[in-house]
Amino acid sequence: MRFVYAFFIKTYLTVMKMKNWPPTALLGLILLITIVLITAIGPLLIPNDPYMANMAERLSSPSLTYPFGTDHMGRCIFSRIVIGSQATLGITVLVITTVILIGIPIGLVSGYIGGRVDSIVMRLADGLIALPEFILAIAIAGFLGPSLTNLMISVVLVKWISYTRVVRGIVLSEREKEYVLAARVGGCTTWRIITRHLLPQIISPVLVLATLDVGKIILIISSLSYLGLGAQPPAPEWGAMLSDGRPYFQTFPELMIYPGMAIFIVVLSCNLIGEGLRDKLGEKSI
C-alpha cells in the first residue's frame, strides 16, 4: 500500500506545481469538472425517474417535463444521460486506476530487475501488440459474457500492457544514468531505488498517458455497451443508450445525438487536458 500512497501523493504534487496552463487545457479542465459535478449531484438534478417507462409519452419532443424528450420506452433522456454518466465515468476511473496499479509495478520490476519477469512481460506485450486493442477487448468481453464487470476486466486486460511498456522503457533508460548508479553505490536497496529514484521519473509520462487514454477507454466502454457486451438494460449507460436509439435513427436522431454528444464532450475535455499536460510536462514522446 505504501507504493500506491506514494504514487498518488507524488502525482498530486506534480500537478499542483504546474502553473500557466494553456487555455485549451483549462477549457477541458472546466468542462470535466462540470461533468464530474453533474455526475456527483446527478440524483438531485434529474426531473424524472430514469427507469420509469411511460409508453404513453414515448418519443416525445423536448418539453419542460422532459428537457431532452423521451426515448422509445417513454423514459426521460436527460435523466438517463445524467444518471448514465455515473456508469460511464465510474467504470472509466476504475479501469484507469486498475490499469495504472497493475502496469506501473510490473513495468518497474520488469525494467529495473529484468530477468525472467522481463522476458515474460515482453513476450506478452509483443503478442498483445499484434492484435488491435478493440477487437481483443470484444473477444475477451464476448468470451466472459455480457456484464459491466466483465467489460471492465476485458478493458483492463487489453490496456495494462501499454503502461507497462512505457514504464519499462523509461526505467531502462534511467537505470543506467549516473544518479541511479550513485544511489546504488550509496547503498540504496533495490526497493528504495525503485520508489525513491525511479517512481518520480515515471509519474509525469504516466499521467499524460492516462489522461489521453481516458477518452479512448470511454469510447471502448461505450462501443462494447453499444454492441450489447456492457451495461445491460434497463441500466442507463451512454453506449447502451446509443445502441437503444439505433432503430429510430432516421425518425428520432435525438435518441443518439444526446448520448453521442455526452461522450464527445467528455472525450474532448480529457484529450484537451492530456495534451496540455503533455506540453507542460515536456513528455513529447507520448
Partner: peptide, 28 residues
C-alpha cells in the same frame, strides 16, 4: 568505497533537493 561521478548533470537526481541527495548514503 564511494564514488564521485563524471557528469555532475546526470549524477544527481533532478527531483530531489540537494540535502536529500547528500544524506542518502547516511540514511542507508
Amino acid at each position: 568505497v564511494q564514488v564521485v561521478f563524471q557528469d555532475p548533470w546526470a549524477s544527481l537526481n533532478p527531483k530531489l533537493p540537494v540535502w536529500k541527495s547528500i544524506i542518502e548514503p547516511l540514511e542507508n
